[in-house]
Design a binder for these strands. Structure first.
Lengths: 243, 243
DNA sequence: CGAACACTTGAACCTAATCAATGAGTGTGG
DNA sequence: CCACACTCATTGATTAGGTTCAAGTGTTCG
């Protein structure tokens, strides 16, 4: 845990309407309305390791990541942490506490220097009341999140770390979304530690498994970089996995 | 897996407005409007073991459980299943596929004979467009679901089956919501198998652990019934759990 | 009454966590 | 620019916690 608030900067958000137009939450909203929304946003920058908000922080703003990458971390007893997910540019975060009206169930930590737009819940809620389209999009997004969580629940519950790591890698690959022609290599930037916290395991185990995959030519890895050489074979491991 | 559709009955829904008024999704909606909504609902009954819908079923209706209890099950490779959650009367289900516009990510199986109201997505969507309040409530509900899933993710990822079972029991106790004066005994109706699928374990292990707790006087159990004698001690196990 | 279902318990096995120690890559400040 | 501190990654040895297999008891229901 690095320092939380010290690395924050706050400014007015401008000139981000173009970006927002293509992000799932705002798709279909009239550009001029969007402009208004953007004008009312704050603009926050957090350095690598810093936090947008901490688990337990009280109510609640909604963020949309502009650049960088954010880790949503939940810490358990004994300091074991679980990464609930990563946020990529264009995606919203902080919405769970915002809508549920509770304190944040996770911390949002910058995995790289990151900038985000911020609104108070009320602003968004009012905007949604006037733009039902957006409310529906919001519902849709949340539904997708629920679905994603259920996927992962399933995974965690049913075993074999090897699959889980394989899946996590594939998910990340898909998320980061470099032109993934089926079968072509994909490069990722993750710490093995993160991978471990993503699949509910330890860095040790991840290291071992990656080592094995490297030997087999499936992947290649150096500090914070993983190159998936054979996505198809990885997919094979992820799917039914022979015992 | 029992037969899916054979045990279904369909009728028009009537006289359920009173119930709906007190369920989270419709809270705050004008009673007369609610009446209209109820009129447009179908009414479906499913016997124990039957399904409202199956994982993979294509689009999508939204259900609200009236009586009974529903298991949301997700099946994994090798037939291992995970219970994603239980639905109690008054709660909606089926909404994830409905909003995400995908096929159902889980099966909805009646744990007891159950009746539910059903609407097509379009009906609900139109209704929401006219009642933004309800859209917001929907968001809130989903947010709570996400939060719940994250809780469980955390749990599954970090450890100790003993805790997980303890927590599952406490969660169920809270969900079922008999007047839980802190410390008083609570009765549950669950199969140990269900408990296992809830915490990502096996019926064997659950049996063993319950046996131990019985010996210690913490709980009491007979076929499909678990009585929590000492909620506080159970809470102790659930929390930090000495290694 | 018989069949299906829920639960129990012992014994063997095995995956992945833990402990311990070390190496390699990055960045910072004197 | 080099040394030191840090973070990230690696690998072997050990072991605990939980799954699996197998066999069996007790209940409920048609």
């Amino acid at each position: 845990m690095t320092d939380g608030t010290s690395s924050r900067q706050v400014t007015r958000g401008r000139e981000h309407a173009p970006l927002l137009e293509h992000c799932p939450l705002f798709e279909g909203v009239d550009p001029s309305d969007l402009e208004i929304l953007v004008q009312s946003a704050l603009h926050r920058v957090v350095k690598r390791g810093g936090f947008f908000f901490l688990e337990g922080d009280s109510p609640a703003e909604i963020y949309v990541l502009v650049t960088g990458k954010v880790r949503l971390v939940r810490s358990g007893p004994l300091g074991r942490e679980v990464i609930v997910g990563f946020v990529e540019p264009g995606e919203p975060f902080g919405y769970v506490a915002a809508w549920a009206g509770t304190s944040h169930p996770v911390s949002a930590q910058a995995a790289q220097e990151s900038r985000a737009l911020v609104w108070g819940v009320l602003t968004i809620a009012r905007f949604m009341a006037q733009h039902p389209r957006m409310a529906i999009r919001g519902l849709r997004l949340m539904a997708e999140r629920v679905e994603g969580s259920w996927d992962r629940l399933q995974e965690l519950a049913t075993g074999r770390i090897e699959w889980r790591i394989a899946r996590a890698l594939l998910r990340l690959a898909h998320l980061t979304g470099r032109a993934t022609e089926p079968g072509s290599a994909v490069a990722l930037e993750v710490r093995e530690q993160d991978l471990a916290e993503l699949v509910g395991s330890t860095a040790y185990t991840v290291s071992r498994i990656l080592a094995a995959w490297k030997r087999a030519g499936l992947v290649d890895a150096r500090r914070e970089h993983i190159l998936i050489r054979e996505p198809l074979k990885l997919r094979g491991i992820a799917q039914v996995a022979p015992r």
